[in-house]
């Protein structure tokens, strides 16, 4: 029975096989990193083909896992290739440095992210912050944001335990969780923006 699921799986698995084939033949480390990002797409597609609410609940963590591993590996790549202390010019697209558009887009993304809350909101708000930092060459205090993200992680853990052991307080837990995850993801993502250059603290 070639149902829709199997048809989708067929195409997606072929893509995965092609991606892995290219990966097997590649020798350059940065190309490998790009290709690994490529093969993550079929893996997410396999989950998406499930087509239930559960699929979405599995995609969101999968996405965040993918990007966080990519972040760690890209930094490891920079360190191992000895590129760490290389100066990087500020983005330097003159148009966006002067215009108001980046500010507006950033504010919109951050505000919308806060309304959405959770993983989705965290990702969108984080993107907004990064875009702002990048276009303005701004850098904030690393440690403070890091601590905020740590605290929000703890908030989320508390929420989890409330859900598990005191389910009658689910309302409080859902608020704590939504805010905790939002802050955590957004803070982590925006810290990437501050890692842009090789500034000395």
């Amino acid at each position: 029975m070639w149902n829709e699921y199997s048809v989708g799986l067929f195409i997606v698995l072929i893509s995965a096989a092609i991606g892995f084939l290219a990966l097997a033949r590649e020798t350059d480390d940065f190309h490998r990193l790009l290709l690994i990002d490529l093969v993550e797409i079929p893996s997410l597609a396999i989950i998406a083909l499930l087509g239930t609410d559960l699929a979405e609940a599995l995609i969101l963590p999968g996405l965040v896992v993918g990007i966080s591993e990519l972040l760690a590996l890209s930094q490891l790549y920079i360190v191992k290739e000895g590129l760490r202390s290389r100066p990087v010019k500020s983005p330097g697209i003159e148009v966006i440095e002067l215009a108001h558009a980046p500010l507006i887009i950033s504010v919109f993304l951050v505000a919308y992210g806060i309304v959405l809350s959770g993983f989705t909101g965290g990702g969108i708000a984080g993107l907004g912050v990064i875009f702002y930092i990048m276009s303005r060459g701004h850098s904030e205090r690393f440690e403070i944001v890091e601590m905020a993200s740590g605290i929000s992680w703890a908030v989320w853990i508390i929420a989890f335990f409330v859900f598990m052991f005191l389910p009658q307080y689910w309302y409080m837990a859902v608020m704590l969780a939504a805010v905790g995850i939002l802050l955590k993801v957004a803070a982590k993502m925006s810290l990437m923006g501050t890692m842009w250059g090789a500034h000395d603290e």
Binding site: V64, S68, E69, L71, A72, G150, W153, K184, M192
Partner: peptide, 11 residues
């Protein structure tokens, strides 16, 4: 979220 935390810690 722990994975995110750890990966970011490494970076």
């Amino acid at each position: 979220s722990t994975i995110l935390f750890i990966a970011f810690g490494i970076a």
